[in-house]
């Protein structure tokens, strides 16, 4: 019950924080608030809801980007994530971002998971093509209905890849990740992400990923596939 209250408080915080930030951002011309929605297909063992819908809010204010997203499988496997990314260094050849996030996920009626993650993401190289990498630590606390118990997990995570911006409107990233910040699953994944921003400032972002049951012990079995497409609609401000 105590965990349930904490989870509800976290849920409320995640939903409200971007909304609380919005009025302040509205008063400042440099802020960009975007609403986004999308669809996903995420097929993995034990996954009861591969078809998923997402809706979220993103606030970009100076060097800070805060995102809240509800990601719900059908019929009922919701997750909710909030991320805050703070750019701490942006020079010609090096870009460094501190990343953090909170998450909640329900696995049907079987489990409720809450967690947080902290880490750093770095780009090294010219802006049009650079090596990218990230490392961090995540914590999950999952309450399982059947055993009436809460289990904890500490997971270091990392990703390494290449990020390209061949033209100003486009961003493409190819990654190998041990724990995908996009999907919450503690997996070894190969991901291709891309985004395109139209002249109207509407942005399309997509992800295609394959997940391995275990990769680093050379066991090599693809047991999951994920595809996502999201459309960002700027409500205030402009990124240009």
């Amino acid at each position: 019950m105590l965990f349930g209250r904490k989870a509800l408080s976290g849920l409320t915080l995640m939903v409200l924080l971007p909304l609380i930030a919005a009025p302040r951002a509205h008063a400042l011309p440099t802020a960009v608030i975007s609403l986004f929605a999308g669809a996903a297909y995420d097929q993995e063992t034990g996954e009861s809801s591969p078809a998923r819908g997402t809706v979220g809010l993103q606030v970009a204010y100076g060097s800070l980007v805060a995102t809240s997203v509800v990601d719900c499988g059908f019929p009922w496997e919701p997750s909710l994530r909030m991320a805050a990314d703070l750019s701490v260094l942006d020079v010609d050849a090096v870009r460094l971002v501190a990343v953090s996030g909170l998450s909640l996920r329900r696995y049907g009626s079987t489990a409720l998971e809450a967690g947080f993650r902290l880490g750093a993401h770095a780009e090294i190289g010219p802006r049009n093509i650079a090596f990218s990498g990230a490392v961090g630590l995540s914590y999950l606390s999952t309450t399982y209905t059947a055993i009436n118990d809460t289990l904890a997990d500490w997971n270091p995570w990392a990703r390494v890849g290449v990020l390209a911006r061949p033209v100003a409107q486009a961003e493409i990233e190819l990654d190998m990740a041990t724990d995908s910040p996009l999907s919450l699953w503690a997996r070894t994944s190969f991901e291709l992400r891309g985004a395109w921003e139209f002249p109207s400032a509407v942005r399309l972002a997509g992800l295609v990923a394959i997940h391995y049951g275990d990769f680093f012990t050379l066991t090599a079995c693809v047991d999951g596939f994920e595809a996502r497409l999201e459309c960002f609609l700027p409500l205030t401000g402009t990124s240009k």
């Binding site: 993995e44 034990g46 696995y107 489990a111 998971e113 059947a146 919450l184 699953w185 999951g224």
Partner: peptide, 30 residues
């Protein structure tokens, strides 16, 4: 072979798919 859980600090050396673990714990316990 692979542990289902094995404590909070088992890191990578167990079943890593949290959805699969939730399904198995539910199945096994019930």
């Amino acid at each position: 072979h692979y542990p289902l859980y094995d404590g909070p600090d088992a890191l990578y050396y167990r079943l890593t798919d949290t959805a699969e673990r939730a399904a198995l714990i539910d199945l096994y316990a019930n």
